[in-house]
């Protein structure tokens, strides 16, 4: 069923990572991604990967859940590994068949890229698993807030609000689609058979009611917002102010150490 498409991956747990300020998490995620790319030798990469695993451990979410995300990108991993294995010459020749030649350095590059991709995915999953979509949009809004000095205050706010609303509406839309599909099936609509034109035509009885109900919903929402005096960013305050607390400072310091060690390892070896 269409409902099975999971949306928003937030998993509620009571962990240090869950409690961190979302702004900090977003900022640190970007930093980790940059430093994973900067790690240029095996030592620094393994070090920052180990740090990543430590963070996964702190989030109290099982490794299995994290590795589910990796399953989806296995084709990409295989593809990049193959490219790297085939195209880097150097070291001793391990295997050759026609024009295919694999050198030790190729294997090394392939492993290196694989570890790098996996770390990237894992560290990104930490953010999506431990932060609610709403917190995330708040964080994006506040990280983009420097743009207000360019006179873009309203634009930033509007964008964040649109993201929040979209996130809020997706599950409702999925449910609605499910219901309309069932209704039309009850009238004998078949969606799985026929040629291309027939199938596109078969979508109309679903898309039109869906579109109409989305428009109705958005009118209702707009009215509800206006009747509560919403008028954009002007004079708007937050219910939950975000504050840095000790945990945040500690995590920031920890990450600075990780980044520094990564750079030092880069330079040393």
């Amino acid at each position: 069923m269409i409902k099975d498409v999971s949306f928003g991956q937030y998993i509620s747990k009571n962990s240090l990572i869950h409690k961190l300020d979302p702004r900090l998490k977003l900022f640190l995620l970007i930093a980790y991604i940059i430093f994973i790319f900067l790690a240029s030798n095996a030592y620094s990469l393994l070090f920052i990967t180990a740090a990543t695993f430590f963070i996964l451990f702190l989030s109290k979410i099982s490794l299995k859940t994290y590795f589910k995300n990796i399953r989806m990108i296995i084709p990409i991993i295989i593809f990049t590994s193959l490219l790297n294995a085939l195209y880097s010459g150097g070291g001793t020749l391990l295997f050759s068949y026609g024009f295919i030649k694999i050198y030790t350095s190729g294997i090394y590059r392939a492993c290196f890229m694989t570890v790098r991709i996996i770390s990237l995915i894992l560290i990104s999953s930490v953010l999506s698993y431990t932060t609610t979509p709403t917190d995330l949009t708040d964080a994006i809004e506040s990280l983009l807030s420097p743009l207000k000095y360019l006179g873009l205050k309203n634009a930033v706010h509007t964008m964040a609000m649109m993201m929040t609303i979209a996130l809020r509406f997706i599950p409702a839309l999925i449910e609605e689609t499910d219901k309309i599909m069932s209704s039309q099936k009850a009238r004998g609509a078949s969606m799985e058979s026929g040629g291309l034109i027939k199938r596109i035509k078969a979508l109309l009885p679903i898309l039109i009611p869906l579109l109409i109900s989305s428009i109705r919903r958005s009118y209702e929402l707009a009215e509800a917002m206006e009747s509560r005096c919403y008028n954009g960013a002007e004079g708007r305050v937050r219910m939950k102010e975000m504050h840095f607390i000790n945990k945040d400072y500690f995590s920031f310091a920890f990450s600075i150490v990780v980044f520094s060690v990564t750079i030092i390892l880069n330079i040393l070896f």
């Binding site: 069932s182 209704s183 009850a186 009885p205 039109i208 009611p209």
Partner: peptide, 10 residues
């Protein structure tokens, strides 16, 4: 006939 069947009209 579903609950609120009017949403199926198209």
């Amino acid at each position: 006939v579903f609950q609120y069947p009017e949403y199926q009209l198209f």
